[in-house]
Design a protein around this nucleic acid. Sequence first.
DNA 1: GTGAAAGCGCTAACAA
DNA 2: TTGTTAGCGCTTTCAC
Lengths: 338, 338
Amino acid sequence: MKNSPKMSDIAKRAGVTLSTVSYTLSGKRPISDAVKQKVYQAMEELGYQPNSLARALVTKRTRIIALLYPAWSSKLGPQSEFITSIAASATDHGYALLLWTSPLTDDEKVMDMTHQGFIDGAILMEVALHDPRVELLQKQHVPFVMIGRYAENADMSFVDLDFDYALETSVRYLVEEGHRHIVLINQSAELLERGIGYVVRSRDAFYREMQKHGLQGIDCCCEANDQAGYEATTNLLNDHPAISAFILMTPWPSGGIIRALTDKGLRIPEDVSLVAIFSPHLAQMTMPALTSVDFPFEEMGRLGAQILVDKLNGIETAARQVLLTPPLTIRSSSGPHR
Amino acid sequence: MKNSPKMSDIAKRAGVTLSTVSYTLSGKRPISDAVKQKVYQAMEELGYQPNSLARALVTKRTRIIALLYPAWSSKLGPQSEFITSIAASATDHGYALLLWTSPLTDDEKVMDMTHQGFIDGAILMEVALHDPRVELLQKQHVPFVMIGRYAENADMSFVDLDFDYALETSVRYLVEEGHRHIVLINQSAELLERGIGYVVRSRDAFYREMQKHGLQGIDCCCEANDQAGYEATTNLLNDHPAISAFILMTPWPSGGIIRALTDKGLRIPEDVSLVAIFSPHLAQMTMPALTSVDFPFEEMGRLGAQILVDKLNGIETAARQVLLTPPLTIRSSSGPHR
DNA sequence: GTGAAAGCGCTAACAA
DNA sequence: TTGTTAGCGCTTTCAC
């Protein structure tokens, strides 16, 4: 980092010019073997490392993509499962991933990094129905793809779980098993208020499907911890003793939920059925293992990165929209109502 | 991104020189209010966004730090809990976090990004006892801190959980509760073979403490999934029917472990005790909630970022070494042996 | 208080 | 096959 050799140093030592060194490195020009030898040797001897900052300044490509996620979800929780798959996929395509937390509030500074040329494109997480980041990115002509969806998605690329489908499937399954009193344990109230797409969509889809079956649903926002799950469940059970099924959108409270059920003397799945929308990992960590619409974090992350990279490479210019519909996997937490 | 205005454009429009614009922005020189006005207005009108790539080229600071983690742990699992806290902390200090997966195998390309001046410093995760990345970073004079430890840590900064302490504590607790046949469910065999610090240290500390009590321990590597947990437990129980306690180092198999126990007709904690070294979130997701040395992901990540930033800002030049010793939190998965 | 000009380390025309 | 040179968009020294 300190006084590192530059191309001119290599050139001097190899007895050629700067550009020859550059071309040797990039291979964009035929170079005689003799010269190649000398250049490589000089680089070796001096321990040369190209300065990609300088390179990026002229090529206008950094090979870095940003992952933008709201600052308030620093406890990203399960969402963080996206991160590793996006990063892995980006790496495979020769890109590095820059994590960039943007306070949704401060529109000005949000993109500080974005526009300054540090990134070639962006992936948005936790997209709200009306997300200021979307407009900003569009205005700045930064290529981006969303994990999640905006309200109005024409001409925008995204990858999302089809939450409408996920909740229809879950509700229908439970209803077919004879359940009539079903509750949706949704994400925290904060996320709902902020209008985060999947939180709103899940709730709406839940009620829509319940109505379709002539049933009245109950929904409830739950903070992402054990305790909150316990309390929410206890309260719900007190208020509506007829409840026989829960749909869980968030994993952290599930321990508390199961404990509350057990403490009430209710058995799973004999007395109460549980259906989750989790990653398979998490769905199988509880006892009993949860029936679940397995959330395809891995696939979604990979696809998101793929789509962005294609866009950056000019392979795909049209918007790509992917909605995934993984099947319901029946495990041990659900069964017929009796 | 496309034809964005540069400083010279602002200068022209404001009727001043390039350098005046630069100084107006940086505030490193007194500028008359009249000029300031004109400059700001011009920036406003043209929608100016400074190009930080160019800036970084001259200042030699990108305000980006890299998080290096081995490519093979793309399913970083719980380790990913570090990522969000590191990112949040970095953001607070004005740095962005660049995720960089380095194949431990290919020493050459590992640091591709590092040396090229794109990053000011690095945080290493999943540090092996003999980690090639450490030597590379040292050779390149890139400031770094480790989450985890090297074999030889003189003059190097790190933050780590004190696994010796964690295992001593766990074993001692179980022994005091009367358990004599204790097994350690460790991370996957691959991690152990690669010599990842905490995996090796945990195993060694486990046997050391068992020996201290005149006991013979059993350890077992387990892949990070439900099924592996089930099988490992079933096999262990068949081979050593006297086992009455498990220490769990990795969360994903725990569902399978609990199910295997239940299927054998063993109750927790009446017949078998479980002690985990997890994040509190995960420890409380199972039923019963796990007694655990709560893994301080949040704190470790925050501290790691803090230490690196201090180093980058020249506040702290000496190496800082932090070893955390969180207490054992007794929950419902453990009790006296009988 | 402001301006002129020399780089930062590289890429890529343009020439030979 | 190789050399020369003009930038990329900014910071900062040196002058005024």
